[in-house]
Structure formats: structure tokens, C-alpha cells
Design a protein around this nucleic acid. Structure first.
Lengths: 334, 334
DNA sequence: CTTGTTTATGAAATCGATTTCGTGAATACT
DNA sequence: AGTATTCACGAAATCGATTTCATAAACAAG
């Protein structure tokens, strides 16, 4: 129904021109009487303006796109909620797109955002850009979150290097001395940076002769965590603790540890990113809490400022994580 | 860039009419030579067709909307993946909208879907419809998933009543005799049906004099599960097992149980919906596995058939769940 | 009282791609 | 050979809202 009534029919019924109907709906000055007639007619006909036509004319829609690598990861859905809340409040509706870390899908969605004239884009970029120019393509504001683009666009980030350092440091202070690292694909910036943070501390403490032997690159999935953890446990002289570079890898690692009969704090675990939907004792694992939701909020705010014409130079906002060390230190020996 | 080149500029550069350019991009017959010229010109100018204009003219876009009550719930994101995979394969892009179980947001997104001329909608309807007519509004195919609408639209469902029965039955067979039920809001269909399934078994077995005293309605969130479980544990004669009516409520219940020092199988737990990202022993809890992803796949398939003009009468597809009883029966006594 | 300025409003252009319609050329059929 | 049919393709209408432009009325200033 709503999609068949046009401004012309409303105009005719109200005895005015289509232009006047448009004006009523856009706040341009129209006499009180005609306004009344138009509103009445619109209500009678159950008129809903055709957004496609409006967008075509205005070259600008009220949608913003949020392009994420993995909507099944609670880290990103939490971010999405942050973006959504701000967007909604500002009168924009959010459309969520999942790239699966596939540059092809990412560029497809960027194309769509542009050719649908979306007001702006919040993008968590995939590992490698198929085509750097893509980021120019939208021609409208774009904010990157979580990962950098290498291009001069606004960004909302966290300090992945520091997060890696903090995670391993907390374990060290808990008494662990052989702290391995499992992280994501070696072409994903967050994975690499967190591992670098880990390595910097491990090197300084001279924890291993060959730190590389205690690093595992895998996928940022539960399975990735499982594989990496299993591989570590099989090594000739296994570690006594592990830093997992993301929330769901930690889950995988904890699963494998549980299956091997090694629960924290017997085996130390630090997770970068909160454990989603966890039932384990909250203090048995060191958690580097990441401000996912807040990153979303901030990104959305920056984006909306840009949409409204904020002329500031390109900004990068770095949000702080918070380290919550496990309460139970490493049991002697282990 | 891409969004400023028009079909007219391409036409001029290729020495043909705009109509011919359009034909080239839509597979209408055009001579080989002109086709070549057009493609060359389009490539040179980095031409991307303006989807807004196309949609306006065609009254039909290549986007499908998926409207969900809670994208932070892995049950729904899993469903979303199912929808997305099918949609992508069929050349549609998916936009995901989160209603937060708010009828206002739901109707807003339905309006948008209609006025953006989206090709179709997959909707997990909120508890109570603000306005039943809304479902007429799109004027384009709509499939409901997970919950019914009470309206004659295609639906992909599961048997919630049976799921409730199966959960409690598995616990009974595991040796538990006082099996309580925690479920979602009493205006959410899935919550009510699952609780009814539970009650039917509890009644038949004459488990409680007053089953109502062992039922808790709460939110379909982790907190809801916590509250409900805590309340049950405080009751004068507590249960020895519980059926939790959704995945995240189960998490809340398990958290409270763990804090009270009661882990399964000491206290029996059955969850309707897989435990997301769990680290607990996989066999300690009875899981009624729900085909979330498959529901998404099926819904998307039905939708695409409808979009392509499938004239079948309204269908309801009910997908089967699978009960996976805990391996360890109830320890004697408890 | 005239000239200058707002102000409300309708007619018409516009956004960019699609599609109908019509024409001339090419091919098929009797 | 002559008529019928198909075919490629350009001109122009179309989708529906917005916006520019022009106009007439209302109002202010001199």
C-alpha cells in the first residue's frame, strides 16, 4: 500500500501542487491551512515518501553502512550496537554488511554504499585491500574502526601492541614464566600487532631462546584457537601459559586446555578481548577488556560529524583497553 | 569518482545513445562492435551504474532486508549467516537491521524496506505487533522466521513446544526429578511455547503440585537467565535441574550455578539452543540443538523463490531440532 | 501612493537509469 | 521480386521527490 501513493496523488487530493506537498514534508514555509490539507490528504492516503526518489534527487540517503569482517564475532556485534545506537539517535538507519574478511565482498559493499548514496560508511577493513583506490570511491565520509587502512581517513583504533604487552605482563606477574602466544592471520594488523606486543615483553624478559617457536598464527576463530593451542601443547617443552590474541581464539584455547585436563589457573590464560558468554570463573583468566562498543559509538559520532560537514583534518582516535589480571596467581610449580 | 560518471557520459564517449549503454549492461541485444565501444568507455570512465536511479525506475532493488530482534545473540547471527550465504549466491546483498524487540523500530525498518524498494524481507517478528497492517505494507515478499506473525505469510519455524518437551524429558531420563523451567518474556511466542512443552511433561509426570512455582519468565538475555536461576535457587524447596529456554539464558543460569558451587551434572541443565562459545565439557549439559543457520538458509531460499514470482500458496516450513542428552546421568542422591 | 522586498506557491527542470515506441535496415518467406 | 518479419538502436517518456525559477500577492519603506 504505502509504496504506491505518490506525492502527486496527495497533491491532487489536497488541492495543491506536488511542490507544496514536498515542502510540507520538508519544513519549508507553507501556509497553515494548506499544511493542514496536505497532512490530512497524506494521512488519508497512507502516504509514505519514496526514499529512492528522494535519494536520487538529493544524492544522499539517510542510511549508514557498517561493514564488518565477521558478524558472528561478539566483538563486532558489540561494536555494531554502539554504532547503531548513535546512528539511530541521529536519525540514520544502519545497514550491516558482512565481508567475511573477503576483499571482494568488501569492495562490493563499498560500491553499493556509494551507488546507493549512503550517507557514510564505518568500515573495519579486511586484511589486504584488493584495491587501495576503493577507499576513494565512496566520495562520502568513511571512518575505519579496529584496523587501519593506511590511507588518510578518520580512524578509531585501540593500541594493539600495548594490549599484547599488557596481557603477557599480567601473566608474568601472576607467576608464569613460559608464556606462549596464539594470534590471528599474519596479514591481519590486529593479530600482528598484538603478537608484536607479546614478543617485546618476551624478548625483554628473555623468556625463550626462540620466541617464534612459541607463537602460532591461525584464524581469528574458535577453531583457530583450538588448532593453535593443541599445537602448542604438543611442542617438546610446552608453555605454562598463553596469550590468546582475540576473544574467540581464547575460547578455542580454553576448550583444548579443558579437554587436556588443564584449567586456568593451572595453566595461565590471558585473553585480548572479553570472553563472550562465558561460564568460567570470572577471575581465573586475565582479560584485556577492549572497548568494542565504545569504538562503535565513537566511530559513529565521528562519522555523523563528517556527514554534517565537519571540516577538521583527518583524526585517529585511540581508545584505551583495560587489563583485568586473573585473581589467582600461578600455583607453585606447575 | 565512481559515483559521478553517468550513463550519458559513457554514451557520449562511446558514440552511442544512453539507451544502448543501458542495454549493454542489461544484456539486451547490441551489436558486438558497439558493445565493445561501450565497455571500453565505461571502463575508461570508471563507470558504476547508479543503483538509486535503477531502483527508482525498476521499482525493485537487489537488496534484501533481514530484520532481527537481537544481533548480539549468536542464535540470530548464525541465522543471519545462513540468509546471507543464500542471498549472496543469488546476487542479492543483505542488509541487517536490529529491532531490539521494539515494535517501533520494527515498523520503521519495514517502512524503510518498502520505501527503499528492497526486493524482499526476512523478519523475525517482535513480540507484539504495533500494527498488524504493517505486514501488508511492504507489498513485496516477506518471510517470517523463528516466530509466527499470525498473518498469512510464509514462515520458517521450529517446533518450540516439542523442544520444551524434549529438553525436560532428557533430563528426566538422566535421573532428575524436580526440573524447573526458565524462559523468556511471556509475550514472546518462542518463550511461551517452550515453557508449555516443559509444562506438558511436568504435568504428565506429576512432578510438581504447582508447576507455576517452578517457572520463571524473564528476559531472553544472560541477565534474565541469572535472575531466573537465582530466584529458583532461593525457593523453599529448590529444583535439582532446569530447562533454560534459550541459549543465552542458559549461560546466565550456568553462571549462577557455578557461583553457587553447583555444576552440572550435579545440578541438571538442559538448554534449548546451543551454548555459544562454550568452554564447559560438551557432554555435561543436555543441548537441544536448533537449526538456526538452516532456518536462515531456508527462509532465504523461500524468499528468493517468491521474489522470482513463485506463485505457491503460503507455506510454513518447520525444521526439526535435535536433542543431545548429557552423557553423565544424575549422580545418585543430589 | 509608488517602489522595493518578502513570501507563498505552482510550473517545470532535475536526479540517472530503464523502457517504450518508432524507424530504417537487414533478413526471411512466398 | 515483393511483402513480412525481425532486429539494432536512438528519441523521448518514465519512475517520484526535490528544487529552481517565475509570479502574484502581501507587506514595508520612502
Amino acid at each position: 500500500m504505502g509504496c504506491v501513493t505518490t506525492i502527486y496523488e496527495v497533491a491532487e487530493r489536497a488541492g495543491v501542487s506536488p511542490a507544496t506537498v514536498s515542502r510540507v514534508f520538508n519544513g519549508s514555509p507553507v501556509s497553515a491551512e494548506k499544511t493542514r490539507h496536505v497532512r490530512k490528504a497524506a494521512a488519508d492516503l497512507n502516504f509514505v515518501p519514496n526514499r529512492t526518489a528522494r535519494t536520487l534527487r538529493r544524492k544522499n540517503s539517510e542510511m549508514i553502512a557498517l561493514i564488518l569482517p565477521d558478524i558472528e564475532n561478539p566483538y563486532f556485534t558489540s561494536m555494531a550496537r554502539g554504532v547503531e545506537d548513535v546512528a539511530q539517535a541521529a536519525g540514520y538507519s544502519l545497514v550491516l554488511c558482512n565481508t567475511d574478511d573477503d576483499p571482494g565482498k568488501e569492495s562490493q559493499y563499498l560500491d553499493i554504499a556509494a551507488s546507493e548514496h549512503m550517507a557514510g560508511v564505518v568500515l573495519a577493513p579486511v586484511a589486504r585491500h584488493a584495491d587501495e583506490q576503493l577507499l576513494e570511491l565512496p566520495g562520502r565520509p568513511l571512518i575505519s574502526v579496529d584496523r587501519t587502512t593506511g590511507l588518510p581517513v578518520d580512524a578509531v583504533m585501540m593500541d594493539n601492541f600495548a594490549a599484547g604487552k599488557d596481557a603477557v605482563t599480567a601473566l608474568y606477574q601472576g607467576g608464569y614464566r613460559r608464556i606462549a602466544c596464539i594470534t590471528g592471520p599474519d596479514d591481519v594488523e590486529t593479530a600482528v600487532e598484538r603478537a608484536r606486543g607479546w614478543k617485546s615483553v618476551v624478548d625483554r624478559r628473555q623468556m625463550f631462546a626462540d620466541p617464534g617457536a612459541f607463537t602460532r598464527f591461525s584464524t581469528f576463530r574458535v577453531d583457530g584457537g583450538r588448532t593453535a593451542m593443541a599445537s602448542l601443547l604438543e611442542s617438546p617443552s610446552p608453555p605454562d601459559a598463553v596469550v590468546a590474541a582475540n576473544n574467540v581464539m581464547s575460547i578455542g584455547a580454553l576448550q583444548v586446555l579443558a579437554e587436556a585436563g588443564m584449567r586456568p589457573p593451572h595453566f595461565g590464560v590471558a585473553t585480548i578481548g572479553d570472553l563472550p558468554f562465558t561460564t568460567i570463573s570470572p577471575k581465573s583468566v586475565t582479560v584485556v577488556h577492549l572497548p568494542a562498543r565504545h569504538m562503535g559509538v565513537t566511530a559513529a559520532q565521528l562519522l555523523i560529524e563528517r556527514i554534517q560537514g565537519d571540516p577538521q583534518p583527518v583524526r585517529t582516535v585511540v581508545l584505551r583497553h583495560e587489563t583485568r589480571p586473573a585473581a589467582y596467581p600461578h600455583p607453585a610449580g606447575a
